[in-house]
Amino acid sequence: MGRLTTHVLDTALGSPGQGIRIEVFRFSGGERTSIGEVVTNDDGRCDAPILEGDAFSVGEYELVFNAGDYLRRRGVAADEPRFLDVIPLRFGVADASQHYHVPLLLSPYGYSTYRGS
């Protein structure tokens, strides 16, 4: 069964990104539709897949990581507006029967992502 998961790692601190709110969107016919939101747990993961089964289909998705709120809570000093505040990751799902793991490696001045498993 296909599913969508994520994991946030704070590479500046070498620890999981705890309590990060992630908004989830689907694109269809040029329309961006909100399909929910999740919050990372103490391990920087979500307690369950973001989407799975019939709720997960071929198409384009976007995960919006509210990183600025997390960095403020961690006491990371920065000028406002922050260099990184809201991080949108838009990606395509070609085979909804597979596992799409979309991690975010985060620091106050950079991030990276990839498709994991």
Rank of each mutant, 00 (worst) to 15 (best):
G59L: 03
A55R: 12
F91P: 11
P103D: 03
Y70M: 10
Q98S: 06
A94E: 15
Y109V: 15
G68M: 04
Y111Q: 02
V64M: 11
L106F: 05
D79V: 12
R82W: 02
N66C: 12
A78T: 12
P103I: 06
P108R: 01
L89K: 10
I87C: 07
P88H: 07
V76S: 01
H101G: 14
G92P: 08
A96E: 08
G59D: 03
L71K: 03
Y61F: 05
R74C: 13
V102Q: 12
R74H: 02
L63Y: 14
P81I: 09
V102F: 13
P49G: 09
S97N: 10
V76K: 01
E52Q: 15
F65Y: 15
A48F: 13
Y100K: 05
V93P: 06
P49D: 08
H99E: 06
G110S: 15
A48M: 11
R90A: 08
A55G: 09
G110Y: 10
T113R: 05
R72A: 14
P103Y: 01
R72C: 05
Y109L: 12
A67V: 15
V58S: 10
H101S: 13
R72V: 14
S107R: 11
E52C: 10
R72W: 04
E52A: 12
Y111W: 15
L104G: 04
P108T: 02
S57Q: 15
L84I: 14
A94V: 11
R74V: 13
G75T: 02
R74M: 15
L106H: 04
L71E: 08
Y111K: 00
N66M: 11
P88D: 06
A48H: 14
S107V: 00
V86I: 14
A48Y: 14
Y61K: 01
P88R: 04
Y109A: 09
E60L: 09
D69H: 08
